[in-house]
């Protein structure tokens, strides 16, 4: 069952992103919010790890959190605003927040 995983912790301060990437299966999605968007920092190992995820896994990032941190999303990552965030939750069968 396709699950949307939602992260908000910085991948530079804990291992949630690493644990999450290991769990993602085909059809699952990953939404980066808050400090988790730092995973898209150019040149970082985290961005490289995201780039290695298979195409069957969709990557998303919350627009306002990217803007607040002046991070540009790479083409692979779909930028979503709040209405799109809501629709994402409806598209995936489950939403799993990494609190």
């Amino acid at each position: 069952m396709a699950t949307l995983h939602m992260l908000s912790h910085s991948p530079f301060s804990d291992s949630r992103l690493v644990s999450c990437l290991r769990l993602l299966g085909p059809g699952d999605g990953l939404l980066l919010t808050g400090d988790a968007t730092y995973a898209l920092q150019p040149g970082s190992a985290q961005l490289q790890a995201l780039g290695l995820m298979p195409d069957t896994i969709a990557l998303f990032a919350l627009e306002e959190d990217l803007q607040a941190r002046a991070i540009a999303a790479p083409p692979r990552v779909q930028v979503v605003d709040y209405p799109a965030f809501v629709e994402l939750c409806a598209t995936f069968a489950k939403v799993n927040s990494w609190l």
């Binding site: 908000s8 912790h9 808050g34 939750c89 409806a90 489950k94 939403v95 927040s97 990494w98 609190l99």
Partner: peptide
């Protein structure tokens, strides 16, 4: 859907 918010 249950959507949880927490952490930073």
């Amino acid at each position: 859907r249950l959507v949880c918010f927490g952490g930073p």
